[in-house]
Design a protein around this nucleic acid. Structure first.
Length: 266
DNA sequence: AGCCAGGACAAGT
DNA sequence: ACTTGTCATGGC
């Protein structure tokens, strides 16, 4: 499958912190797991090419039916974002699986990206289903809900293990309906997700943006807080209103460009 | 060696 | 409602 899209850069999309299961290979390609498929993807002659034959899956996952050019042009009216967009051109917001995003961003709390990736990898290797070439699916809530803290010790997630089990049990028993979140408004959805232990505002917002495509949501982590203060001169109590005024419905895209810009620049 | 990590939580003002 | 200490582990 060949994807011709001028607003699609694999490195920027995979390295901007929204996902944790894509890895750069020695030949320059990326390999990752989406649902039950191991996918290889690379750039060739100015296009993106993948060995995945499920066109619908690729289009949905990489948000290929959205034109990023107009939204970038809108955000460019902000001079700071102009630079951030120029730097992070080709970022696309992936449409990830809610359950995987929930667990992944629980693990992300007070953690660093290399270790987040290792913990998730261990989680999949130990409790997921084997796919091809030694890759594993992301373990289901059903499987994880039957584990104990001792079982989960192998992934070395520290105090987050209890949070993972809480999420799995709530999904398994039906207290947490991840499908229902699609139809919720962001504020309602955020409160709903926060019933899971280990899910606060920031983790919830990442899930809403990276799985549910709630693009107005603007997750505020330590990096973004530094950016908003350093580049925009904002104080924390003014973040929400300022972000809504400046970026509006495109807050999530703005956040991702700014996050990548701030992180790679340091 | 020591600080920090895409924070959340509980306990304390 | 705002501040502070703590949490498990390891990357840098």
């Amino acid at each position: 499958m060949i994807i011709r899209n001028k607003d699609f850069c694999l490195a920027h999309t995979f390295e901007c912190g929204q996902c944790f299961r894509w890895n750069l290979q020695p030949d320059g390609s990326y390999i990752g797991v989406v649902q039950d498929k191991v996918i290889k993807i690379w750039e060739e002659n100015g296009a993106v090419v993948t060995d995945c034959t499920d066109t619908g899956l690729i289009e949905q996952y990489f948000d290929l039916n959205r034109d990023y050019t107009p939204l970038k042009n809108t955000l460019r009216h902000d001079a700071i974002l102009q630079a951030a967009i120029e730097y992070g051109y080709g970022i696309r917001l992936l449409k990830q699986q809610p359950w995987e995003a929930l667990v992944s961003f629980i693990i992300s709390a007070n953690n660093n990206i290399p270790r987040i990736k290792k913990i998730i990898e261990a989680l999949c290797r130990n409790f997921g289903s084997p796919l091809q070439d030694g890759y594993y699916s992301f373990p289901s809530a059903s499987v994880l809900s039957k584990l104990t803290l001792e079982d989960l010790a192998v992934i070395k997630s520290g105090y987050r293990a209890g949070y993972i089990l809480d999420a799995a049990k709530k999904v398994q028993c039906g207290d947490l309906d991840l499908e229902a979140v699609y139809a919720m408004h962001p504020d309602q959805a955020r409160a709903y997700l926060k019933q899971v232990k280990g899910v606060g505002d920031k983790v919830a917002d990442c899930i809403l943006l990276f799985a549910y495509q709630k693009f107005a949501v603007f997750p505020k982590d330590v990096w973004i807080k530094r950016t908003l203060h350093r580049l925009y001169g904002l104080e924390e109590r003014d973040f929400d209103t300022a972000v809504a005024e400046k970026f509006g419905a495109l807050g999530g895209f703005a956040q991702q460009y700014l996050f990548y810009y701030e992180r790679e620049r340091s």
